[in-house]
Computed example of a mutant assay.
Amino acid sequence: MREISLLLGAGFSVNKGYPTAKQLNNKITSLTAAQFAVAQQGSVCWLKPEQEDPYTHTSYYIYKLFTLELIAFYASQHEYFNYEEFFDYYTNVNKHNDGAFEKLCNDFREKHHNEDDNINLIAAHNSIFNQIIAGFLVDREGVRFYPNVHRMGPYAGYNGFLGCLQRWGEDRILHINTLNHDLFFESLNHTDAIHGELSDGFSELGSPYYGSLENQAKIRLSYFSGKYSSNFRLYKLHGSLDQYPFHLMNGGQIDNYIKTKPGIGITDFYKEVVDENGNFTYINDFINYFPDFLSGTTSKILRYSDPVYYESIFKAFEINLQKSDMLILIGYGCGDSEVNNIISNNFKGKIYVVDPFPQANTIEFCKINDAKLIEKTPENIGLPDFE
Score class of each variant (00 low, 15 high):
Met1Asn: 15
Met1Pro: 15
Arg2Pro: 11
Glu3Cys: 09
Leu7Trp: 00
Pro19Gly: 14
Thr20Arg: 07
Gln35Leu: 08
Phe36Pro: 04
Ala37Arg: 03
Ile62Gly: 05
Ile62Pro: 05
His78Phe: 14
Tyr83Val: 10
Asp88Thr: 06
Val93Trp: 08
Arg109Ala: 05
Lys111Pro: 02
Asn120Phe: 06
Ser127Ala: 13
Ile132Val: 11
Ile133Met: 13
Ala134Val: 12
Val143Lys: 06
Arg144Val: 10
Val149Lys: 14
Pro154Asn: 07
Tyr155Phe: 14
Leu165Trp: 00
Glu170Val: 10
Leu179Thr: 02
Phe185Gln: 03
Glu186Ser: 14
Thr191His: 09
Ile194Trp: 00
Gly201Asp: 10
Gly201Ile: 03
Gly211His: 08
Ile219Cys: 11
Tyr223Lys: 03
Phe232Ser: 01
His238Arg: 09
Leu248Ser: 01
Ile266Glu: 07
Thr267Tyr: 02
Thr267Asp: 10
Tyr270Cys: 07
Phe280Tyr: 09
Phe290Cys: 13
Phe293Tyr: 09
Thr298Tyr: 10
Ile301His: 05
Glu311Asp: 08
Ile313Glu: 04
Phe317Gly: 01
Glu318Tyr: 09
Gln322Lys: 15
Lys323Phe: 13
Met326Pro: 00
Tyr332Phe: 05
Gly335Phe: 04
Asp355Pro: 00
Pro356Asn: 08
Ile368Met: 06
Lys372Ser: 07
Ile374Pro: 03
Ile374Asn: 02
Glu375Met: 15
Lys376Pro: 04
Ile381His: 00
